[in-house]
Simulated scan of single mutants.
Amino acid sequence: MQITAQALAHFLGGTVEGNPEVTVNRPSKIEEGGEGSISFLGNLKYEKYAYTTTASVLLVSQDFEPREPLSATLIRVEDVYGAVGQLLQQFGAQEAGVSGISERAVVSPQASVAEGVAVGDFAIVSEGAMLGPAAVVHPQVFIGRNVKIGARTVLYPGVRILDNCIIGEDCILHANVVIGSDGFGFAPQEDRSYQKIVHVGNVIVEDRVEIGAQTTVDRATMGSTIIREGVKLDNLIQIGHNVEIGAHTVIAAQTGVAGSTKIGRYCRIGGQVGFVGHAEIADGTQIQAQSGIAASITEPGKAWFGSPAIPYRDFIRAHSVFKKLPDLYRSLSRLQRAFDAAEKKGRD
């Protein structure tokens, strides 16, 4: 990928200071640089490197005021880290060899493909699907009927987006993510067998969501399973049907969320946490790894731990006592023997 500073500034919504025709072909760390590279200054702790870097282009904030001469061309942007994220997505797509629409991809004539979309080898884009501007579809991705993919969203190899699901803008779905699989719904019968409940809803993933490899999000029975803006899901997470996850919540690997649970905004959830179905979790809740959530949490901003989970500090105090139980038992036994001896002596 070879691109001029001017074209980069247009792509990132920034402005150029310096030579607009200088070209770059790779990103670099600011302390390493190198001719033909683009770096960034997002933290003023690294400002000293701005004056020595050999990078050709440097991303900086709109309000950055250099105190020494600079050799790099500047691109000023509102959000440096956001711009870096966009930049790395594009460079990553190019490094993976995804550019344009592969002759070995299958794109339905009834699909809508916007300008700048890349579709890799053996990807399938079904009828009625809509791919937004600069979306990147890596090899072997499946996009079902009437799926909508937002601008600049990246789907890594093996991602499956099943019929009627919606993915927002600037999302990243890592390898083998499945969006829109059937929920786990079965009705018990008189003969003790189970009748499958067909799930006819969909999944809505809002903007700037990142979903880790092999995570699955089930479609709703009716209506929508919803992943709100800015949510970050780690690898190997199971999200059940009709779940809603609030904006900017983060969830670590191997967590399972049972159907119809509603998780609030700005929550932080550790790995291997299990949620019972139909629970409601308040905004700002923090849950320690391997906890089990067996009921709703209604008070916002609290930390929880254990299985079933209790308030975090209570668990820590209880665990501290638990470790001392053998000593406490021996002390109690000594006291009991002393009491028995004193009682016997009193009777004598």
Rank of each mutant, 00 (worst) to 15 (best):
E299Y: 11
D327H: 11
A342S: 13
H199M: 13
A220S: 09
Y156M: 11
V257G: 00
E32R: 10
A253R: 02
G150S: 08
P109W: 15
K48I: 07
A253D: 06
F11M: 15
Q254M: 11
R334Y: 12
R268V: 15
A220W: 08
L88A: 00
G168R: 00
G82N: 12
I287H: 09
G301K: 13
S108M: 12
D163V: 04
A213Y: 08
Q288M: 14
V321N: 14
A55R: 06
L70D: 06
T249G: 11
G240E: 13
R208E: 11
P20L: 10
S126N: 07
V217S: 05
H319G: 09
L173A: 13
N19Y: 06
V57S: 07
I38D: 03
Q290G: 15
L236W: 02
L131G: 01
R313F: 09
V125Q: 06
V60A: 04
T4F: 02
A213S: 12
I310R: 09
A114W: 09
D79G: 10
I197V: 00
R67P: 14
D340A: 09
A55P: 01
G284P: 00
F122H: 04
S37H: 02
R268H: 14
G223D: 13
I75L: 00
E68I: 05
R337N: 12
R145C: 06
A134H: 10
I179A: 10
R26N: 09
A341P: 10
R67N: 12
Q272I: 03
E17N: 10
S307V: 04
R317F: 05
V178Y: 01
Y312D: 11
Q336Y: 15
G246N: 07
P139R: 03
S331T: 14
H241D: 14
I161K: 08
L70R: 00
R152T: 09
L44F: 12
I251M: 01
R228T: 00
A123F: 08
R334G: 11
Q288W: 07
P157W: 05
G301I: 05
V154A: 06
N235I: 00
H199P: 13
G82I: 05
T53E: 05
D163Q: 04
R317K: 14
G150K: 06
S108T: 01
R76M: 02
I245H: 07
A151H: 05
W304F: 03
I149W: 04
A253M: 12
S333W: 15
V22M: 07
L335E: 06
F40C: 10
G306N: 10
P27H: 05
F275S: 02
Q94T: 12
L74V: 01
A93M: 03
L332Y: 08
A279R: 12
H10Q: 15
F64G: 03
G150C: 07
I316C: 15
P188H: 14
I269F: 04
A175I: 05
L328N: 09
A295E: 14
A258Q: 01
A96G: 04
I30K: 02
V147A: 04
T15C: 13
G183E: 13
H319A: 14
K196V: 02
L44Y: 14
P69V: 03
S320H: 12
S320F: 08
D348I: 01
